[in-house]
Design a protein around this nucleic acid. Structure first.
Length: 477
RNA sequence: GCCGCUAUCGUCUAAUGGUUAGGACGCCAGGUUUUCAUCCUGGUAAUCCGGGUUCGAUUCCCGGUAGCGGUACCA
């Protein structure tokens, strides 16, 4: 059975790149009818951020991606948190040492640091010099007796290591360029390399789908599988998600823009994010662009994943979000918008309906509907006058409008429109001469939604009041 | 420095040993609209460079260049 995993570290929030990796794993699993596992890789105690794990799970779920096994779910291969599996790693690393595939290293960090610096100044590859590889049993015994801190290193054999990657094809690495990687740290925690291989094997992961940054160290992992005598999973390395400068999207360089939660908070919709992320590095056979999560689980195919990194482009995300906002029913949109509307006791359905085609993200509603909530609009009287209009005629238009709208009993967009039309067809005013001042009177803005939608949303009393205020403003000027 | 990966419009991408190199976003123009937004129509713009193979290369091969990633007791 196909089984994949998403294995983030609890060092922050859900990263956009991670979200895409999770999505691809999920889609691949669902399409194959397999399982998708969430595993927490908290083996670095220094970088651990409290509360991070919960946010990771929460953000992923918000996207609509659900896992079959994970920290908060029962599963037969748990625990799914690596810090709870230390004894397992210890046992496996002991086996490796016993079989001669790994060895104890008692070198101090200072020595390692100096070694690295010397190699750098000599323009040599920076690698461990294997000083501890040939320690005698007695020497090792003595170090242990002295309680010298130690790590366990992989003993990289002579030769070349080859593996096949689903998106990159065959990769060949000379073993003499591979460092004797630390597998077990001096604090008893495993490094990523050990924990990852052991867990993927024990959890019966069939496909490792992860970021491209892991491609160089995959050779180490292949070596580890060999050392354990296990068969390796199928490898698949996804191209990086890049920033506008084409470097890997990172918290350090790009700040909050890397977190999924940033977009969530601004009112980007999960299906828009999913749709955008899916197309960032993957493309279907045809030219379809709009996909639901469900569509994607049918269409997705690792063989069509791009090799080169993809720049995260907010303007395209914006377009997707606009598409999804416009597709929503007014009722659904209004419900989503409640978090963003200012405090009020009004029915906002009319507001929502009038600005649906003007929103890029849900938070835009604040600015877009600001004029609805204001008790007193502030604008210059001159704004009321159309481009080629005169104050006198504008005043007349507003008075006529006030008069005719006062007599509209059925306050709907249609009847308001026909009331205005009757004024226009009387021939006294052009549409612009009539509607422009009304728009400004109602909104205080040059750009606004449809005049009649605004009036409907505002209600009769408020609409007439605003017309009245505009008339007074014009008279005073 | 060393190792690895990658290279089609500004961005995401499609395609092919022979095409006017296609689509989307953006941008520009026109139409609709009282304005703006929406919507519709049209336009703009790309095969990194140099060799080779071939009748023919953007596509296959080699080299270069550039970008990215790795080079930790981080993941």
């Amino acid at each position: 059975m196909t089984k994949v995993r998403f294995a983030p570290s609890p060092t922050g929030e859900l990263h956009l790149g991670s979200a895409r990796t999770a999505l691809y794993n999920y889609l691949f699993a669902k399409k194959a009818g397999g399982k998708f596992i969430f595993r927490l890789e908290d083996t670095d105690q220094n970088r651990y951020v409290a509360g991070s794990a919960k946010r990771l799970l929460d953000d992923l779920r918000w996207l609509g991606i659900e896992w079959d096994e994970g920290p908060d779910k029962k599963g037969t291969y748990g625990p799914y948190i690596q810090s709870q599996r230390l004894d397992i790693y210890k046992k496996h690393v002991d086996n490796l040492v016993a079989a001669g595939h790994a060895y104890y290293c008692f070198c101090s960090k200072d020595r390692l640091e100096k070694l690295r610096q010397d190699q750098q100044t000599a323009k040599q590859p920076t690698m461990y010099d294997r000083q501890c590889l040939n320690l005698t049993a007695d020497q090792v015994k003595q170090f242990f007796a002295d309680k010298t801190p130690y790590v366990v290193r992989l003993h990289v054999p002579v030769g070349t290591t080859e593996f096949t990657d689903l998106v990159h094809g065959k990769i060949t690495i000379q073993n003499n360029t591979i460092d004797d990687q630390v597998l077990l740290k001096s604090d008893g925690f495993p490094t990523y390399h050990l924990a990852n291989v052991v867990d993927d094997y024990l959890m019966q992961i069939t496909h490792v789908i992860r970021g491209e940054e892991w491609l160089p160290s995959t050779a180490k992992h292949v070596l580890l599988y060999k050392a354990f005598g296990w068969s390796a999973p199928i490898w698949c390395h996804l191209p990086n998600v890049l920033n506008i400068k084409k470097s890997k999207l990172s918290k350090r360089r790009d700040g909050d823009t890397v977190w999924l939660s940033t977009y969530r908070r601004q009112g980007y919709l999960p299906p828009a994010l999913v749709n955008y992320l899916a197309l960032l590095g993957w493309h279907p056979t045809d030219e379809q662009e709009i996909f639901t999560l469900n569509d994607l689980t049918r269409e997705f195919d690792l063989s069509r994943v791009q090799k080169a990194g993809a720049v995260f482009d907010i303007t395209k995300l914006n377009w997707f979000n606009e598409q999804y906002i416009r597709k929503m029913s007014v009722a659904d949109l209004d419900k989503e918008l409640q978090v963003f509307y200012p405090k009020h006791s009004q029915d906002t359905t009319g507001f929502t309906s009038s600005i649906q085609s003007r929103l890029t993200k849900l938070s835009d509603v604040v600015e877009a509907t600001d004029f609805f909530f204001k008790k007193q609009l502030k604008f210059e009287a001159s704004l009321l006058i159309p481009k080629k209009g005169s104050p006198a005629k504008t005043l007349l238009a507003l008075e006529r409008a006030l008069n005719i709208f006062t007599n509209v009993s059925n306050w709907t967009t249609e009847s308001l429109r026909s009331a205005a039309e009757s004024l226009v067809s009387a021939g006294e005013f052009s549409r612009g001469e009539l509607l422009w001042p009304i728009r400004v009177a109602l909104t205080g803005l040059a750009n606004s939604p449809d005049v009649f939608d605004v009036m409907t949303a505002l209600g009769k009393e408020s609409s007439l009041g605003r017309l009245n205020q505009a008339i007074n403003l014009l008279k005073k000027s």
